[in-house]
Design a protein around this nucleic acid. Structure first.
Length: 435
RNA sequence: GGGGGCGUAGCUCAGCCGGUUAGAGCGCUGCCCUGUCACGGCAGAGGUCGCGGGUUCGAGUCCCGUCGCUCCCGCCA
């Protein structure tokens, strides 16, 4: 018999159907037995009268344990007594495909770390499933937008022969008789695609950061969304792309899952107005101080508390959840960020904050070879190991820029989750390599 | 790497100024219950109080060390 999804049962009243899923609850009474079965589309009640003495099927129901994988067959009946959708299955056959041990190691209210130990059990909960449905929708909407705009999808190597920026946060791995590094970013390669004349590229893929970070928004491996665009005039073009792209993604996610997100996570998804507010780093510090907050001194990036305070201020003043912070000093940006002509101590760069968390770093890149070399020297970067990268700019590179975007941070904010581990299928951190 | 908090039953937690037999809810096992739907009732099992050392007549409780978790900072997306 073909498998019916629980969502479809209301159209199958009177039919004999087979439902396959997990036992959510067994209520085994004197005269009646009820089994609540869960599949990926919902919950359904199966009901069975108890014979005296109990029949084989009755005994099989009595022996069921929660979370066992089962196949149940019966006739769909409408019954207004059933609070679960007014429907039930008159059970006539039961197959235990795989029994669950009686005592479960985790519950919905277990500590996150324990839930990750038993992640597959945790992910059986419909609210956890919703996270990944939203992720699927969000990524699809991103691709929709990119394709409509002529972007090419990239798959860059994750093994690298040298550090792409500073060596500090790289994982070193054995690579035959030498050492390799795991890519911390596709940065250099997407710039190579610019030199290759690809025009506009994106990549959704894993990046690796060897930071011993113990926060709710860091992991050692995460999915990065990277975009790079040629023939721009300034970083403003990159921001203009990003805000339009993000507004599209949030529109689609809200259309598709808005009510479910609100019901499940008590979070309202607000589709942002375009353009997003922009503020230079220096002005943001002034704003913070005028509002009575501390702000880091010149030459320093905002710290997390000031990022949160700034987002709150922008929300008050502009009614907007997103903020582009622009024009970071060269001291806190890599050598390849383009510098302003009027003030070479500032870069043509930006961060994007959403509700106080950093989603993106982006910039116009320096595409002029001599200038790039000068900036590398200025930042005391050893150019020998990255000469292959510098070569990209020797034979005609277009002006270009782009951004890196943390997919998990986006999901975390969209769903009102407090930790990237909640929205990562399997979290990887300094002490977490399993499961 | 620095700072704070936490570690007690399968799960979530309580345990006071150190005191003799370590508790609760959920779950589990058994029995009872005319349709439950967070079902209900009765009974029961279940503990190396993270680990090691110390102080004390006596340590879940105090001290030192250690391991793990967690949040914040640094670092970043």
């Amino acid at each position: 018999m073909t498998r019916s999804l629980i969502r479809e049962l209301s159209e199958k009243v009177g039919e004999r159907v087979t439902v396959r899923g997990w036992v959510q609850t067994v209520r085994d009474q004197k005269r009646m037995q009820f089994v609540i079965v869960r599949d990926e589309t919902g919950l359904a009640q199966a009901v069975l009268g108890k014979d005296d003495p109990p029949g084989e099927l009755n005994d099989a129901v009595s022996a069921l344990t929660a979370e066992s994988a089962v196949t149940v067959t019966g006739t769909v009946v409408a019954d207004e007594r059933v609070k679960l959708g007014g429907l039930e299955l008159k059970l006539d056959a039961l197959q235990v495909d795989s029994p669950a041990e009686p005592e479960l190691p985790v519950a919905a209210d277990s500590a996150l770390d324990k839930r990750i130990d038993w992640r597959y059990m945790d992910l059986r909960r419909p609210d956890r499933r919703l996270i990944f449905e939203v992720q699927t929708t969000a990524e699809h909407a991103m691709r929709e937008f990119w394709r409509g705009d002529g972007f090419i999808e990239l798959h860059t190597p994750k093994f690298m022969g040298s550090a792409s920026e500073s060596g500090a946060e790289l994982f070193k791995v054995e690579y035959f008789d030498r050492e390799a590094y795991l890519a911390q970013s596709p940065q250099f390669y997407k710039q190579m695609a610019m030199a290759a004349g690809f025009g506009r590229v994106f990549e959704v893929g894993p990046v690796f950061r060897a930071n011993p970070s113990f926060t709710s928004r860091h992991d050692t491996e995460f999915t990065s969304v990277d975009v790079e665009i040629s023939w721009i005039d300034s970083h403003e073009d990159v921001m203009a792309f990003e805000e339009a792209w993000l507004a599209h993604v949030l529109t689609v996610v809200k259309q598709t899952h808005g009510p479910a997100i609100e019901a499940t996570f008590d979070t309202e998804l607000v589709v942002p107005a375009v353009p997003f507010p922009r503020v230079t780093l220096e002005d943001s510090k002034t704003m913070l101080r005028e509002a009575g907050h501390d702000a880091p001194g010149a030459g320093h990036d905002l710290d997390p508390p000031s990022e949160r305070a700034l987002s709150a201020l922008i929300r008050e003043q502009h009614g907007h959840e997103f903020t582009f912070v622009t024009d970071y000093p060269t001291t806190v940006r890599p050598f390849y960020h383009m510098r302003h002509v009027e003030d070479p101590t500032l870069t043509k760069s930006f961060d994007l904050l959403w509700r106080g968390i950093e989603l993106t770093t982006g910039a116009q890149r320096e595409h002029r070879y001599e200038q790039l070399m000068a900036q590398a020297r200025d930042k005391k970067v050893d150019v020998a190991p990255i000469q292959y990268y510098l070569n990209f700019f020797r034979f005609g590179a277009p002006p270009h820029g782009g951004f890196g975007f943390g997919l998990t941070r986006l999901l975390m904010q969209m769903l009102g989750q407090e930790n990237v581990r909640e929205v990562t299928f399997l979290y990887r951190g300094p002490h977490r390599l399993e499961p």
